[in-house]
Design a protein around this nucleic acid. Structure first.
Length: 137
DNA sequence: GCCAACGTTGGC
DNA sequence: GCCAACGTTGGC
């Protein structure tokens, strides 16, 4: 059981879209490090969803329902991009902003801050818990 | 809109 | 294999 954080630009695919779709293929990832993380996801893993750009906040939790498969949106056969299937799991009572994450010392090593351009990253269990606790308080 | 960070491409 | 040029992402 692992924990992850994925980013999405809400103009492309928002939390509202996921809520509406319930299941979605998390595709379009075009970065090897992010792809390698997608390939490590297992069914039942919990995934925090972060909206970048306009809103900059973690909105809730999704769950991995299918492990990686070839990304159907990739036309380049030489580059084996992959997607996973995610399912809407839980919306946070309170969205956690980037600003708030930055203000918490225990989260200072989180990939979201350390490597701001990476779109799929692992989370420590403790980091996942801290964020969930914030969101339900 | 600007810019830093970083990934990719292509010439050498 | 190096590195300059360029493109993209994402915070501010």
């Amino acid at each position: 059981m692992s924990y992850w954080l994925v980013k999405s630009d809400p103009d492309t695919y928002s939390w509202e879209d996921l809520k509406k779709d319930v299941y979605t293929d998390w595709d379009g990832v075009r970065n090897y490090q992010a792809r390698n993380n997608l390939m490590k996801m297992e069914i039942g893993d919990e995934v925090l969803v972060y909206e970048s750009q306009s809103t900059k906040q973690i909105t809730g939790i999704a769950e991995v329902t299918k492990t990686f498969f070839p990304d159907p949106t990739s036309l380049d056969m030489n580059k084996n991009w992959v997607a996973v299937e995610l399912k809407f799991k839980e919306e946070f009572k309170r969205f956690i902003t980037l600003q708030e994450i930055k203000s918490i010392k225990e989260l200072s090593n989180i990939g979201l801050i350390k490597q701001s351009r990476l779109s799929v990253m692992p989370l420590q269990a403790e980091e996942f818990e801290i964020i969930c606790n914030l969101a339900t308080n």
